[in-house]
Design a protein around this nucleic acid. Structure first.
Lengths: 220, 220
DNA sequence: ATTGTAAACGAACAAAAATTCTATGTCAAA
DNA sequence: TTTGACATAGAATTTTTGTTCGTTTACAAT
C-alpha cells in the first residue's frame, strides 16, 4: 500500500517536494507550486498525480481547500486521534445556590490555564465544543454521589431524555441539583443517584435543564 | 518580545486556535476560519490582529499566499509530551466479598482490550507501571461515594499514610472496603467518605492494605 | 491498422482567500 | 470638547488557487 517503488518518477518527485516545502514553510504547497517545482506545466496533471498519491496512501486531501494536501506519513491521524486528549474548559464551580455558570461560547481552543485534559472516552462521541467542566464546591451534590472537589463534565443542553443525569436549576427552591431525569406525564421525577434517597417531583416549567452529566472525575 | 500577557484576548484566542488547527489539519487556517473560530465577523479585523501578532513576534506571514501564516514558536514537543495519554490495565472488578484481584505483574504492555486511557493528571507523577484499574460491581462501595460501574484507579501498595484512601481487605469480616486511612496508636481508623457515616476501627494485623485510590472515574 | 487506456497539456471557470477601503465606536490625552 | 490612536465592522475588490473539460500523445493489446 505504501510501496514507493510503484510510484512514477513524477509522483516520487512530488512527494519529495512536498516534504521539503512543508519543512521550509510550515504549510503545504499549491498545485501550481508543485507543478513548477517538478516541471509539470499543467495543473491538471499535478492534480492527476496527487490523486494517484492519495490512492497509494501517501497523501490525504481536503477537497476545495487551498493547500489542502497533507502527507499521511507525518500525521498518522487515526492513531494520533485515538490516543489524543481533549482539552475541556474548566469554567467554574457548581454550588447548590446558583445556576451553573455556563459559558455562552466555549470555543475549541480552551485557555490552557483553565482547562483539563480528559480522555475522549469520557465524552463518547459528543462534539468536544459542547463539553465543559465544573468543579464541585461543598457537599451539596452528595445525593448524586458526587463530593467536594470532584470535577463534572457536562454537555451543554436544555433538554433531557429519561435516565440522563442532568444539572437542573429549580426555580422555586432556588437551587441547582444533579439528578436522574424522568418525564412522568405532566411532571418530572428527579431521582437521586443514592439508592436510599427519595425522588423529588417538579413541574416541567419549574425546572431548567442546564446540562447533561457526561462523567465525573475524582482525584485523591 | 514574546510576552503573551501584552496580547489582547482576541490575539490570545487566535494564537490558541492556530495551534490547535495546525495540530489537527497539518496546515494553517485561513483568515476567515480564524474569524469564525474566534467570533470575529470581519476578515479585516482578523488581518489587523494577525499583523499585531507578527509585530509581537508570535507569527510570521507570507503576503498574498493563502494560509501563509506560521507560528514562530515551534516547540510542539513539550506540548505533545504533556498531552500524551496513559494506558492503564483494567484488571477486574471490585466486590465487597473478595480481596482485590491485583495482578502480580502488570507490566507496561496493557492489553488494548482491557485497558483504559487516562490523563496523566489522574495519577500524578506515579510510575504508570504501578497503576491498575478496577470496575466497581454493585453498591457495596457506596460509603466511599463510589457507585456501581465506577472505575477506580489504584496504586499498588501495602502500606498507607494518614489520609490516603485505600482498599483494605478486612480479615475478620471477609470483605474489601474503600476508606480513608488513619493510624491511631495500635489500631487503625477507617473513615468512610460519606460525612454522616461512622468510622470503623481495626487492628493493624486485621487489615491488609491492597492499594491506594488515586482517582475515580464515572461515565454516564 | 484499430482500439483502449494511462498520462499529459492548456485554457476556462469557479471557488476560496487575501487585501483594501470606508465608516463607526471607544477612550485617554490635549 | 476636540482630537487622534486604536480597535472594530462590513463590503468591495483583487489575487490566488482548485477543478473541469476538451484535446493530444504514447503505447500496448486486439
Amino acid at each position: 500500500m505504501r510501496d514507493k517503488s510503484k510510484l512514477s518518477e513524477r509522483q516520487r518527485n512530488i512527494l519529495r517536494f512536498m516534504e521539503s516545502y512543508i519543512e521550509n514553510f510550515g504549510f503545504p504547497p499549491t498545485i501550481r507550486e508543485i507543478g513548477e517545482a517538478t516541471n509539470i506545466r499543467s495543473t491538471s496533471v499535478v492534480n492527476y498525480n496527487l490523486n494517484k498519491l492519495v490512492q497509494a496512501g501517501h497523501l490525504a486531501r481536503l477537497n476545495r481547500k487551498s493547500r489542502g494536501i497533507r502527507l499521511t506519513s507525518q500525521q498518522p491521524q487515526p492513531v494520533r486521534k485515538a490516543r489524543q486528549q481533549m482539552r475541556v474548559p474548566l469554567v467554574g464551580q457548581i454550588v447548590a445556590s446558583a445556576p451553573l455558570p455556563i459559558p455562552e461560547d466555549m470555543g475549541h481552543y480552551p485557555d490552557p490555564e483553565n482547562a483539563i485534559e480528559v480522555s475522549p472516552a469520557l465524552i463518547g462521541n459528543t462534539d468536544p465544543a459542547e463539553i465543559f467542566a465544573l468543579r464541585v464546591k461543598g457537599d451539596s451534590m452528595i445525593d448524586a454521589m458526587i463530593q467536594d472537589g470532584d470535577i463534572v463534565l457536562f454537555r451543554k443542553q436544555e433538554t433531557a431524555s429519561d435516565g440522563d443525569m442532568v444539572a437542573v436549576w429549580l426555580e422555586e427552591r432556588g437551587e441547582t441539583t444533579l439528578k436522574y431525569f424522568y418525564r412522568e406525564g405532566e411532571r418530572i421525577r428527579l431521582q437521586p443517584a443514592h439508592p436510599t434517597l427519595e425522588p423529588i417531583y417538579v413541574s416541567a416549567a419549574g425546572c431548567r435543564v442546564q446540562g447533561r452529566v457526561m462523567s465525573v472525575i475524582r482525584t485523591l
